[in-house]
Design a protein around this nucleic acid. Sequence first.
DNA 1: TTATAAAGCGAACCGATGTTCGATGTCAAG
DNA 2: CTTGACATCGAACATCGGTTCGCTTTATAA
Lengths: 225, 225
Amino acid sequence: MAQKELSTRQKKILSFIGSFIDEHGFPPTIREIGEAVNIASTSVVNYNLNKLVEYNLLERAPEVSRGLRLVKDETELPVRYAEQSNLLAVPLVGKIAASEPVPLPGEDFGYYYDADDMIEVPQSMIESTHREELFALRVTGDSMIDAMVAEGDIIVLKRQNTARNGDMVAVWLSEHGETTLKNYFLEGNRVRLQPANPTMGPIYVDAKQVHVQGRVLAVLRTLHH
Amino acid sequence: MAQKELSTRQKKILSFIGSFIDEHGFPPTIREIGEAVNIASTSVVNYNLNKLVEYNLLERAPEVSRGLRLVKDETELPVRYAEQSNLLAVPLVGKIAASEPVPLPGEDFGYYYDADDMIEVPQSMIESTHREELFALRVTGDSMIDAMVAEGDIIVLKRQNTARNGDMVAVWLSEHGETTLKNYFLEGNRVRLQPANPTMGPIYVDAKQVHVQGRVLAVLRTLHH
DNA sequence: TTATAAAGCGAACCGATGTTCGATGTCAAG
DNA sequence: CTTGACATCGAACATCGGTTCGCTTTATAA
């Protein structure tokens, strides 16, 4: 059906229509095309436009001025498409520090936040999760070093109160009055909290005082001059 | 300037133009508008179109059929815009390990890569840099722990051979035959390489054997079940 | 009520624009 | 050379479609 033998003129016409629409917001007339592509007669433009319609590269509305429309090529721009696609806007609800409880998103969770308080995360980084359950925290202080998390890092969490073994979670240790980021392992009635840094040892805490605040999905660190 | 007193007709006109363009790919004529909005005279349509131009909601190309264009409203959708906007696709060109040199992007740098080898980064994370100079590496091994970088992390770099003091850079130490991530400080004719982890001390290396491969812009870590 | 401005109407004008058709040129097959 | 498909040209045609202008209607204030 769609032949590959486009003449130079037809290619020119096609690209001219595209850029004309970009520039003006509406398609060109037959005469405007002719002038741009150096075709003397309107009938020749008309002739070639009909060819392009045959090749399925163009649609025409008969008897209508500027009645042109480029057929969108589904097969084009596979990468570009990916580039433009999904960013998640995750609310940055506060800071996380060893000495304080984890701030959690308020009632208006999932609704509107100031743009300033949102951080953008590529959806590809977050395995499919409902965006409503996501929030982010900025790390303050160096106390999370054992979790391989530095001051200024942003961690993206999913709000949840339970954890599976091996999950990295933000927990509040009620007895210590302390927040920490660790890998979670339930062992009998106590919990082993294992730092991400393999050179450091775990701590063991009574399961009753481990309050999971959320599971860590990602850590983002940006460095500036 | 832009008044808020749009008449019912003007609102109808505006929305009709929008949906007409959506449907046809080109703007309607004055008469088509009149028919759709129930205006008897073309002059009235013309009159209202000019009003809309005054209010800065529309642009017209004089003497041109279908010479209409909706003014894009910058103030709308502040958040949505952010959600949809710019993702950078950065080529993931290889792995970084302490024991090997840094792989650098090949000749076709900036051109085409497989989607599989690209990672997506929100433009907002990368202070404005030319995308052509960016590349990414996956960290293997635990040897970068002193840089607060864990196995599996992805680091985004800007290709450059020099560094400013304080920059976190990927360097190749020719004498040691070793790659490392450190903060760079030139002190006389030697370089102090300071680990990101504040509990660890610096190393000092002859400036001549410090080969900067790139500056670290971001570190991304995703955790999975 | 009257004056004034804004909004609407209808018709005429004329350039803009898609369509049609006969004539010409080109090129490869027969 | 002849033939026929293909591309081009030029011109004529009939609408399409933006513009203009005089007039009427509606709304608001004096």
